[in-house]
Write a protein that binds this DNA or RNA. Structure first.
Lengths: 395, 395
DNA sequence: AGAACATAATCTAAGCATCGAAATAAGTTC
DNA sequence: GAACTTATTTCGATGCTTAGATTATGTTCT
């Protein structure tokens, strides 16, 4: 309850500056005048504030709009080269490191394959650190200009004094990835669950734009969700919120790799679908197999839609979001052809009012946006704490 | 995303004043000096601010602590008689109206029985309006001193231009209770779901104290949940969040009165338990019957614990709360004797990390705290917007 | 009882942020 | 080239928090 947050007059400036910056970042170029109208701040304040931001090189002028009889407005925008963000995608099969400018244009990229059984934390950390060096030298960006490194990992990310990672599929149980990386770089680190990172990307730039209450579900080999409440990603007390895949939709049902029974993931995860369709999951090529299964329209497909619909309906009933976004490669495959059927099942299994208030759409960023999502963690910090970012609690 | 909220220097004062008031309200009497230490505000600011609050009669002096060599501290506290709050509990069997002072001491109370089939919106509104008059005159409180009326109703409360209520059990479908009441009183109105209101009471004064991330589940005839995220009750986009009872835990399972199948409520709601135990639910005396069923330890009891545990585990996995509080008369009955068994099932069905981060406890306020909870809606508004409350969006 | 001491609360001048109004800049139109 | 329009900057006023000095109100020691 009581959250002692004293406000002093300087916080006002900080807050307003951050607000202006956010607005310029998300709502494209705008003139000082536009900003004044959008924020409600007086023209005078906007003027001095943008003066400061221009002086710090954080924003730049970006042409001007033609006038129809008056001084033309000068457009302002965030300087995409003010700083850079690195996004890292740690998955079961690879470590991918990507370098972005502030506009999140990809400037460089490097990928290291992980052999199925090799998931030493040290090896992963080495790949990440090496990757950081590679992308920076490839793009010719000096390390000092990097605002931070975002890392998206599978499993549960436990925030505390140290960042601990629990990923059953990796055999990781309390791996201090933060500490391992800090030993090799002094860049600010932001470690989070990959699904959550990607969810934020979808929220910022994909199908989630403008939604304050949304859920982004990610269906691949694993199944997770990003819950967005009042504009902010919801983390829970130990930042493991969003483990939608292991909520039970069939009490006492199919065994799941988590050890439980009847988990959603045990019905709609990639492996689960193939399993139920009688396809071996030993060999590679899941994606092709799954495509074939979906095209075949066996009863398994209809069942899968049924379980997915129930899972989504549960989210609608419990959280009353205005938008649900389906992502992940399995999710996108399912959605491409079966969205109407999914919607029908959701309608059937959710209450009328919250159903009517929600819309169900597919993600727009494709299934490989984890590194991009990880980079948004860095941008978020940048937008919140412009003046001399410094140390972050996350790293 | 972009939430244009300009801050001016006066907002600082408003915010700090509200913070001081919250602190005095929740953390009992405190001296100016304590407040300075707790909030981080300078002693000077605390002094001028409390001066204003004292002048407005919102806070009062409350004795002083003995000194051990120095000027003794004067304690300050919220003036319980500064204003009053009315809480209304609209349930399937009655309309109850209660009057509270700011400390939420009950000053007066009146109850109107509802006959099973009589749930005219007009009748309910009449009872509420009559009740307001009765409690005020009983306690001798003039209407001008009432800060507002909180109303807890079953079903879904849809906030918009008008407050619309959808309650299947009542046969209410889009009932504009707000408008009906506004026709009879000019007091500020706050209508919300009764379970959510009670959840807030439990959060403020019961087992939820101090928890920023919690879920309060209410199990009675219906089943609902209050989700608290970062200290604030979560409402969702059309304020119907929390319909936990109609999340599915057995895809394709038992039919539920909502028309769906496999809802949690169809297993652990009062009627569902009795039904499954083969007890008629036609007659009154559910509570006695249920007590007997629970004592009998039939397999139905164990099953019920199983379903409840799965439902709770789902909340833990998805939301990662630090505390889950079980309330409602059925919930309290179950918890009284079966809490260890419930905990065991929850442990079995939730992931290790989020389970370890959470605690499962019983509510402390008893099953009849809906009116109290409704009154907290009024207090909340009072604490947020001290200076001249005026019109509220809720009413 | 009175002086010395200790702590709480208030007062005062200074710094910082926003704001409205006036002034200035930079175009278009007649 | 003068008149007009609109954008941006400058300037003085207002209001808020703060640090430090001052005042208030106790206890304790002699």
């Amino acid at each position: 309850m009581a959250r002692p947050e004293r406000r002093t007059v300087r916080d006002v400036r900080r807050g307003n500056r951050a607000m202006l910056l956010r607005m310029l970042y998300f709502d494209g170029p705008a003139s000082r005048n536009d900003l004044s109208a959008l924020t409600g701040l007086s023209a005078a304040t906007v003027s001095t504030m943008t003066g400061g931001l221009l002086g710090d090189d954080i924003i730049v002028e970006a042409g001007q709009v033609d006038s129809d009889g008056g001084r033309p407005r000068v457009l302002l925008r965030v300087n995409p080269r003010y700083g850079y963000a690195i996004g890292v995608d740690v998955s079961e099969t690879h470590v991918r490191v990507e370098l972005f400018d502030l506009d999140l244009n990809q400037l460089a990229k490097v990928e290291y394959a992980l052999r199925p059984a090799r998931h030493d934390p040290e090896l992963v950390a080495m790949h990440i650190l090496a990757g950081i060096g590679v992308v920076l030298s490839d793009a010719g960006v000096p390390a000092e200009r990097v605002l931070g490194v975002g890392v998206g990992v599978p499993g549960i990310v436990e925030r505390g004094a140290d960042v601990l990672i629990h990923a059953k599929a990796f055999g990781w149980n309390g791996v201090p990835l933060g500490a391992l990386l800090r030993a090799g770089t002094s860049l600010p680190l932001h470690v989070d669950n990959g699904a959550k990172a990607m969810g934020q990307a979808e929220l910022w730039f994909g199908s989630g734009r403008g939604a304050a209450n949304a859920v982004i579900v990610l269906i691949g080999a694993g199944v997770g969700a990003t819950v967005v409440a009042d504009g902010a990603t919801f983390h829970g007390v130990s930042s493991s919120a969003g483990e939608w895949g292991h909520t039970k939709i069939v009490a006492g049902g199919r065994p799941c790799r988590c050890g439980g029974r009847g988990c959603l993931e045990a019905y709609i995860g990639a492996e689960a679908i193939l399993d139920r369709a009688g396809v071996s999951t030993r060999k590679a090529g899941w994606q092709e197999e799954l495509t074939r299964v979906l095209a075949s329209r066996t009863p398994v497909v209809e069942e899968t839609v049924g379980y997915l619909g129930v899972g989504l309906a549960n989210l609608i009933n419990l959280l009353n979001p205005e938008r649900i976004i389906i992502g992940g490669w399995v999710g996108l495959l399912l959605g491409e052809t079966l969205l109407p059927e999914i919607r029908a099942v959701v309608a059937e299994n959710s209450l009328a009012q919250p159903y009517a208030a929600s819309s169900l759409v597919l993600g727009r960023l494709g299934p490989d946006a984890v590194a991009l999502g990880a980079a948004t963690l860095v941008i978020e910090e940048f937008l919140n704490a412009t003046p001399a970012a410094g140390i972050t609690a996350t790293g």
